[in-house]
Design a protein around this nucleic acid. Structure first.
Lengths: 340, 340
DNA sequence: ATTGGCACTCAGGTACAGCGAGTGCTAACG
DNA sequence: CGTTAGCACTCGCTGTACCTGAGTGCCAAT
């Protein structure tokens, strides 16, 4: 096992390196921390840490830098999660105050998280995979147009304008609406398609075209609910930290913009301790993110986790702070969503 | 006046510099273009161009680079707008095909534009400043919840879930809905507030709280329509062209993410020729964009310009291509919107 | 007006030396 | 046996010097 003091040395190295962005050597280490031993002793410890692949020397004779493995040990066993500072807390409080529109709340959340961490923040929209239909409506809004509205039980409302070939008559619309409400109210989204199997048989042949047009639209909306989405903030922080990443940042920006990669990543990650999921550097098996770390936490609605939020930044990031921020924001968001 | 051949030299310099990203010298110039004169002659022309501040030499003895003013002259008088290539046209065709949901169409448009130009593309949402209310609906979707829906005449639909303190009764909801429809149908958005002036007097004292809750929400939605919005694609292209910009790109990313700056910029710019507005480098009086050029064009709906779209990139960009692409995409979008 | 010739400039590359932070190793110490 | 001082060594970084080559401005000749 690695002796206690060596672990302290690792903690100090991570701390100093995050602060200075310079490889840290034995001498400056004893100067800044009171180990009560000489640099030579520290060097022995560092040799050990290097053997364990927890730190590495960029060049033969320069200070050491933590490896991904080193960061991992740090967060798992050494990084005490600091509570947020008072100003940070009050920033959260005020930020979270305001309209309760879902889009609006999530938008504020992601900007808040980005500000607290100085990293790229992301918030996943609530997944409605497990949701169910709360209400469905069909409204005539023009001679040949109707509005189809789907309200699901996770505060999300979608609507779509449908154009018909022929003029609509009110009775038909009302009838169709009533049938849909009857069939679907309370039905799980995953069951909607099955429920509608032979729905159109309830209508006359002359209505088939219009009915199937509406049903197609409805199914499309249900599908759109499955398809997750992420909103981002603070991508400029990537550019600001550019040299923390090995190569160019443009592949990363692409991956982020693409969303698909990001969604896959989020899906894969599982919470570890404190309800926070963490991937460090190469632990992400996605090439573009091999020099970045991701901190994620789920947030809840009515007791069930509905989606995740988190930050993404260079492996050289302030883990203690960021983990604390992600946890706090996720809790506040859960709280804010409770009001719906 | 600047002699004809000197202008040809400028055109050649712009062309070669865009292609090679290297200051271009007299010798390589005569090699690549058939001027029929010697390098020395070209040098005389270049001295003239430099005097006119159209080109500049980064160091005392290196090739020349176009200035903002040089680019300006180039696009105004020398840059023939190439028609798009066949593959580009078909790319547009296929891209534009599909769902006619406004969000969806604009999303596809911005990605398309980014792909065609290899730059950051932006599409402004149709401004509804001049729009009017097409339809307004109030739906009870729960014991204490109702859905307020606003449909405007520019294919946009908004909805908001309202929570009430007390249980709702159907009659009240129906009545309120009818009153709103009666008061607002066809009314210009800018007139909505005025129309609702003493609307609540139509209801009993016990209803005042609920009524004003609904009206507040409605006005909020009308307001949200005023507030413009821009969607972006291809921000990764900024990072890829990083060294085309003098300093760091992170202030630019910030400005872009902020939207406010961008909106101001878009507002200010006025179309010049071919219906395209262009700002080159320092012509943008916004500091963050002093090394970027912006190409914009309006797009229409029912004959009236409703918003703008365009690209943003380094001053060293392929103006001919980008102007052509912006024009073409704007026309296609106008066409696609006609279908609503 | 155009051109060849020529001296000049200057960024960028290579070579080399000195500095200094940092290392590993060894021998001495409590 | 863990700790420490001492020491030789490594190697990235910085600064100096030098060279090269692309490109220039100018001038006299065509």
């Amino acid at each position: 096992m690695i002796p206690e003091r060596s672990l302290e040395v690792l903690r100090a190295i991570v701390h100093d390196y995050i602060e200075s962005n310079q490889p840290v050597g034995s001498k400056s280490l004893v100067e800044r921390h009171s180990f009560g031993v000489s640099p030579a002793t520290i060097r022995n410890d560092m040799a050990l840490l290097e053997e364990e692949k927890l730190i590495v020397a960029p060049h033969t004779s320069s200070g050491r830098v933590p490896t991904d493995k080193g960061y991992r040990l740090f967060v798992d066993r050494l990084g005490e999660v600091k509570p947020l500072s008072i100003p940070e807390r009050s920033a959260i409080e005020t930020f979270m105050h305001g309209s309760s529109d879902l889009d609006e709340v999530l938008g504020r959340t992601v900007r808040l998280l980005s500000q607290l961490t100085d990293q790229v923040a992301m918030v996943q929209y609530p997944s409605l995979e497990k949701g169910s239909v709360k209400s469905v409506e069909l409204l005539k809004v023009g001679e040949q147009q109707a509005l189809l509205i789907l309200v699901t039980d996770i505060s999300r409302i979608q609507q779509h304008l449908i154009h018909f070939d022929k003029e609509l008559d009110d009775d038909f619309v009302a009838n169709l609406r009533a049938q849909m409400v009857g069939s679907l109210q309370g039905v799980a989204l995953s069951q909607v398609a099955a429920k509608l199997e032979d729905f159109s048989s309830k209508f006359g042949a002359d209505r088939q075209a219009a009915v199937s047009l509406v049903l197609d639209n409805l199914l499309e909306q249900v599908d759109a609910n499955r398809q997750d989405k992420i909103i981002l903030a603070g991508t400029a922080n990537l550019a600001r930290r550019e040299d923390d990443f090995k190569g160019s940042i443009s592949p990363m920006l692409e991956a982020i913009e693409e969303q698909v990669v990001l969604l896959k990543l989020i899906q894969e990650m599982q919470a570890e301790q404190h309800g926070v999921a963490l991937r460090i550097g190469e632990e992400n098996d996605i090439e573009q993110f091999s020099t970045t770390s991701v901190v994620l936490s789920g947030y809840e609605k009515e007791g069930a986790e509905v989606a995740k939020l988190g930050v993404l930044g260079p492996t050289r990031m302030n883990y203690s702070n960021n983990i604390a921020a992600v946890r706090a924001v996720s809790r506040y968001l859960t709280q804010a969503l409770g009001g719906f």
